[in-house]
Design a protein around this nucleic acid. Sequence first.
DNA 1: TATTCGGGTTACCTGCAGGTAACCGCATGC
DNA 2: GCATGCGGTTACCTGCAGGTAACCCGAATA
Lengths: 113, 113
Amino acid sequence: MVKVRRNKVEQPPEVCPLGECMSLISGAWSPHVIWYLRDGPRRFSELRGDIKGVSAKVLTARLRQLERDGVLIRREVDSSPPTVEYSLSELGAELRPAIAAIVDVGHRLKQRR
Amino acid sequence: MVKVRRNKVEQPPEVCPLGECMSLISGAWSPHVIWYLRDGPRRFSELRGDIKGVSAKVLTARLRQLERDGVLIRREVDSSPPTVEYSLSELGAELRPAIAAIVDVGHRLKQRR
DNA sequence: TATTCGGGTTACCTGCAGGTAACCGCATGC
DNA sequence: GCATGCGGTTACCTGCAGGTAACCCGAATA
């Protein structure tokens, strides 16, 4: 009994711009991180304070992922106690208008109710 | 041994505009639905064709959720065979600029690589 | 000496979004 | 008489994001 070789017909990858961008900013916390970094670098504990309700674990996970994705840059500052500074990369900066548009709509949604 | 009653201190709800808006457009498929409805009503099978890779089940689920959230309007058209037409509500229309901004960034992300 | 702060890590658990596959009723067309 | 298109529904399974709680080290501070 020979197994059928199911030649998965490879769709041309054809990356969707919407999906591409959403994969960077989706999730409950990523947009918040980008938003609070919009005006310059912030430290871990500052972000924890900025973003109401996020836990250290989840914030760490999001920061690591955004770093892997090239959205932000992590820099250890040699102070005492040593601190860590996060800032948007060039790519991250490109995401700002999208987040800003979402925040903008969010404000208008609050207005209308 | 009396159990401590831990009065969960109720934070003032203080809805975050970013979270508010993200809850409407998050998920892998919701933004696509809104995007393809941007220029007017579409039928179920049209949306299935527009949005590459979505299954009937998931598309139904997203459409139902977006309807519950007041983002779009479902209208059964009395034709033969009967068809169903989805269109953006007023609230849904407010989301367009946000999605447009995301798509726009997505395009620029493709450019830069 | 003990505590705090900064920036995490680890273990464990939950829920929900999404994926596949099969099936549905109805009306029309071949 | 049978298949096709339309707009779904149902069952079952998977993976990942997120939540809680406890714990970590080293330096500075009370």
